[in-house]
């Protein structure tokens, strides 16, 4: 019986090692370990073994069974690994083939830039508000210290609906609406469309966008205005950006300034982009004129504030390096897809 056992075991090992597939391993498992398998047959012969011998033989049978099982398992694992290898190899793809994109739409570049500006000011505690595009003369001019027949009214080439109603030429009109609400302090930006009678060309459009800013509180200073816009410029154009405040004149601010930023292309050395100046003009600003505060019902002896206004298209053209403003209003997909 022992001999038989040894023979079965040896035979099984040989056959397992020479098995050619996972299926033939299954056959071998049945042949040796199955209900009618050879090893089971041996076990059936145990009744003929003497009582003293029985534990030892039983042990041997079990050892043989275990060994065969182990070998079957490891061979199976090997076959599976081989199969997996083959499959993985066969499934190789050319990862340099083009990706499949979802047909997402694109933001208009003006709004890409507007969102950047809004995020900066919202982060600094400003509310984003709006006002009417068709506006009373009073809000667009008079309340901003531009009375009837003021030359600044001519400079802006206003579109009129009638004597009292016009297309706003500046988002500064929103300043007055906010002030008239009478809720202080005010910290707001107001983006929106404005209109001026400029013929269409590469740098002009009769319809464009401005972003107005207004802060009114007790103790607001010109230094606060400088600090705020310097902070904006650094966040918008990059941390190394410097600002230059030049005295200027706007009827509704005093003192007033125009602000240049160091060219973000050349860092201020002068390049084609900044026309060799090293600086790029981006906005106008100033301390809210005390008379404007008075007209809106705010006491200039108690409150002060600053205001600023910038052209959205100007920022967009600069930052996206677009050389012709007309592209913004043609809506050619080949243009829009770039943003």
């Amino acid at each position: 019986m022992l001999e038989k056992l040894v023979k079965i075991r040896q035979e099984a090992m040989e056959q397992i090692l020479s098995a050619s597939s996972a299926d033939s391993l299954n056959d071998l498992r049945v042949r040796y370990l199955g209900k009618k398998g050879l090893l089971t047959e041996v076990l059936k012969g145990m009744k003929d073994v003497s009582a003293e011998e029985r534990p030892r033989v039983g042990q041997l049978v079990n050892d043989a069974r275990k060994e065969i099982e182990n070998n079957l398992d490891s061979m199976r694992t090997e076959f599976e690994n081989r199969l997996m290898q083959a499959r993985l190899q066969a499934e190789e793809i050319d990862v340099t083939l083009p990706g499949k994109k979802t047909a997402l739409g694109h933001s208009h570049p003006n709004n890409v830039i507007l969102r950047q500006v809004e995020d900066i000011f919202v982060g600094m505690g400003y509310e984003v508000v709006s006002g009417p595009e068709i506006e009373y003369d009073y809000y667009n001019f008079e309340a901003l210290n531009i009375p009837a027949n003021h030359p600044a009214k001519d400079e802006q080439d206003t579109f009129y609906i009638n004597n009292d109603i016009l297309l706003r030429t500046q988002t500064s009109s929103v300043q007055i609406h906010e002030m008239e609400r009478g809720v202080l302090p005010i910290r707001m930006i107001a983006p929106g469309r404005v209109f001026r009678a400029d013929e269409v060309d590469a740098t002009h459009s009769p319809s464009f966008h401005q972003i107005e800013g207004l802060v009114i509180d007790k103790g607001i200073t010109f230094a606060d205005l400088k600090g705020t816009l310097d902070e904006f410029a650094k966040r918008f154009f990059g941390p190394d950006t410097r600002t230059k405040f030049r005295p200027h004149h706007f009827p509704f601010t005093e003192p007033s300034a125009e602000v240049d930023v160091s060219c973000f292309k050349c860092g201020g050395k002068g390049c084609r982009f900044c026309k060799g100046e090293g600086w790029i003009e981006i906005l106008g600003c100033g301390m809210v004129h005390p008379h404007v505060l008075e007209m809106a019902g705010i006491d200039p002896d108690v409150y002060s504030g600053f205001a600023f206004g910038m052209g959205l298209e100007r920022l967009t053209l600069l930052k996206c390096e677009i050389d012709d403003m007309r592209l913004l209003y043609e809506n050619d997909m080949r243009f829009l897809k770039q943003f």
Partner: peptide, 16 residues
């Protein structure tokens, strides 16, 4: 002229 930031006490920015 120095550059400072307004105090903005209690300000929380938001879109309407």
């Amino acid at each position: 002229i120095p550059t400072t930031l307004p105090a903005m006490k209690g300000a929380s920015g938001k879109l309407t």
